[in-house]
Design a protein around this nucleic acid. Structure first.
Length: 224
DNA sequence: GCGACAG
DNA sequence: ATCTTGTCGC
């Protein structure tokens, strides 16, 4: 798949923050209305000094339609708030190898639930020009009330007077997941679509499967 | 200055 | 994320 090159990746943390402040002005959100669609889940692992990105495409019945991956040396450190500058470039190389035209992409991390409203899901959404949703296992910023222990319960994640995401209990008695829209989708649709992809586990199938493959391919890579 | 801090 | 086995609890 193709994408729009919005800026260089060879930059300093300070420049990265400036880029985020500029890109957030381009964000748009809307209701997702397609009835039939394909989704993709993205995740990365880090064997040694390398970054390994995996993209798994699923249909609405959780059937795997395509899987692609890409490995290359990581060039940016992990800094809270700047995750996209570490994982984004590697994900985009994998995206180039993808042949299936997907309708929504789930990322491992936040969307607009970010200090500058530009988490990795929002950032990559702007590059690939597709609706994106951020699925994080812990919060980066914001306040919220702990959801009830029963699966299906949720509360809102608020930051600087705004509702940026949802804290959703996907299964009984498990830590909730943090759902936030990335780009071209609103909060309501993000929750609705995410619910459709929760199977037997806490994490939605797209990112859960991407994570499994990220670990599997990493082992092969390390053993040869 | 102190605490928080996606993966 | 990564280093790593068993183990407590639903």
């Amino acid at each position: 798949m193709i994408y729009k090159k919005l800026h260089n990746w060879n930059i300093t943390p300070k420049e990265a923050i400036n880029i985020q402040n500029e890109l957030k002005k381009l964000l748009k959100f809307k209701k997702f209305e397609k009835e039939t669609f394909l989704v993709a889940g993205v995740d990365l692992s880090f064997p040694n000094k390398y970054g390994l990105a995996v993209i798994v495409v699923l249909d609405q019945k959780f059937n795997i339609k395509e899987i692609v991956h890409h490995i290359e040396k990581v060039k940016f450190p992990y800094i809270p708030g700047l995750l996209a500058f570490r994982e984004g470039p590697i994900f985009l190389k994998a995206w180039e190898k993808l042949k299936t035209n997907v309708d929504i992409v789930f990322f491992d991390g936040h969307g607009i639930a970010h200090p500058r409203k530009l988490g990795i899901a929002s950032h990559m959404g702007l590059w690939i020009e597709k609706p994106t949703i951020g699925i994080a296992k812990s919060k980066l910023v914001g306040n919220y009330k702990e959801p009830e222990k029963k699966h299906g319960s949720f509360s809102y994640l608020e930051y600087s007077g705004e509702r940026l995401g949802i804290v959703y209990r996907s299964k009984d008695n498990v830590k909730p997941i943090f759902i936030s829209p990335g780009y071209l989708i609103d909060i309501g649709s993000s929750l609705k679509i995410t619910k459709l992809f929760i199977g037997k586990y806490k994490l939605p199938e797209p990112t859960r499967l991407a994570h499994i493959y990220t670990q599997k391919i990493k082992k092969k890579f390390l053993s040869c």
